[in-house]
Simulated assay, not measured.
Amino acid sequence: MASTRRIYSIPYMLWLGLFVIAPVMLIIYQSFKGIDGNYTLENYRIYFSSSTYLMMTLNSVLYAFIITAMVLLVSYPAAYFLNQLKHKQLWLMLIILPTWVNLLLKAYAFIGIFSAHGSVNQFLDFVGIGSKQILFTDFSFIFVAAYIEIPFMIMPIFNALEEMNPSLISASRDLGANSLETFRRVIFPLSLNGVKSGVQAVFIPSLSLFMLTRLIGGNRVITLGTAIEEHFLVTQNWGMGSTIGVILIIAMVLIMLVTGEKKKRGGRTK
C-alpha cells in the first residue's frame, strides 16, 4: 500500500519540483546577480534604500487590501444569499462562468465600457451629469480588479457555509438568539476558514497585478507587478526584477501564514 502511494505521488512531486520549486530557486539565484552578470547584494541594497521601490511596495499592499476588502464586502452577502436559494448550485455556476472568459477579453470589454464614448459615459450624458474621465483612474483599476476576483472569494465562502451543520443554527435560535446574534456568534465564526481562503485567493494575486494596471490604470497605477514587467522586458535588469519577485514571494508566504488555519495542541484546527 505504501509503495503504491509513493508511485502515485511521483507525478505530483515532479510537477511541484519542476514548476514550483525550480522557478522559485531560479528567481532567488537570479536576484543575487547584477546587471553585469556578477554576484552581488546590490539589488537588495537598492531595493531597501530606494524610496521609489518602498512606495511601490506600499502601493501594491494598499491596492491589494482595498481590492480584497471590496471583494469581501460583496462576496460574503452574495455567498450567504446563494446558500439560501433552492437551486444554489446553478446560481453558483452562473457566477463562476465569467472566470472562463479570458482576462484580456474582460479587460478590453471594460475599456469599451469606461471609455469616453462608452456605456457609462453615455448613461451619464443621458441623465444630465455629463461625461467623466473614468478609464485610467484608480477607481476603474480597483473596480475591474474586484469584479474579476469576486468568484474566487465567493466559492470558498459558499463551500464553508454549505458544509455548516444546520442543527447548530437551530440550536442557537432555540436558545433565544436572534438572527443577528446567530450570524455573529455561529455562522460567521464557522465560515471564517472560507473567508481566510478567499482572502488568500484574492489578496495574493492582487499584489502582483500588472496587465490591468497597463490596460485599465493606464500606467497611473504603479505596483510591484508593473516594476517586474519593466525590469524583465524593458530595462533587461533581470537581477532587480528577480529581487522584487523574491520580495513578492516573501509577502505571499506571510499572507498565507497570517490567514492560514491555526493548529491547536493535539492536531486540532481552529
Rank of each mutant, 00 (worst) to 15 (best):
T259A: 00
L207H: 09
M211P: 02
N193L: 07
M93E: 05
D36Y: 07
E163H: 11
I150N: 08
E181V: 11
R45N: 03
Y12S: 11
I247M: 12
H231W: 09
G218C: 13
I35P: 03
W15G: 11
R173W: 10
L207Y: 09
G217R: 05
Y147P: 08
A177H: 10
R214N: 09
E149F: 10
R265I: 12
S50C: 05
T259S: 00
E163M: 14
S119N: 10
N121D: 03
A107S: 15
S140Q: 05
G218W: 10
T52K: 13
T52W: 15
A145L: 09
T57Q: 08
Y147K: 06
T57D: 07
F183E: 01
S3Q: 14
L14W: 14
L254N: 04
F19G: 04
R45L: 04
S170H: 15
G239T: 06
K86H: 14
P151L: 08
V246D: 07
V101R: 00
E163Q: 15
A201R: 13
W91Q: 00
F123V: 00
F114W: 03
R268G: 07
S167V: 15
M153I: 09
P205N: 01
G217S: 11
L14A: 13
N43Q: 04
T68C: 08
M240I: 05
E162R: 02
E229V: 08
V61N: 09
Q236G: 03
N178I: 10
K88G: 04
L54G: 13
G128I: 08
I129N: 03
A116E: 12
F139L: 11
S119T: 15
K88F: 09
M55H: 13
L254W: 10
L168M: 09
I35H: 05
S75Q: 09
I244T: 07
V144R: 00
Y147S: 11
G239V: 02
L92S: 03
E149M: 12
F143G: 02
P151S: 06
L104H: 11
N237M: 10
F19N: 06
G130P: 02
I27E: 01
G17H: 11
N102G: 12
I250C: 06
W15A: 14
W91T: 00
L212F: 14
Q122E: 03
V234I: 14
L233W: 14
Q84P: 06
W91G: 00
Y108Q: 02
M256C: 07
A227P: 04
D174Q: 13
M55E: 15
I113M: 06
G34A: 01
G198K: 08
L248K: 05
I249H: 05
I35S: 11
N83R: 07
R268E: 12
I96S: 09
V186W: 11
N38G: 10
M93R: 09
A78R: 04
K263F: 12
V195S: 10
M240H: 03
Y8Q: 10
I169T: 14
P77D: 01
D125Q: 13
F203W: 14
Y44I: 02
Y29M: 00
G266V: 05
N38K: 14
F32C: 03
W100C: 10
V71R: 05
L233C: 00
M256L: 12
E229Q: 15
M25R: 02
I27V: 14
L248G: 07
F183I: 02
T213W: 03
L248N: 05
S49V: 00
G128R: 07
E149A: 12
N121P: 01
L16I: 08
F139M: 09
I27K: 06
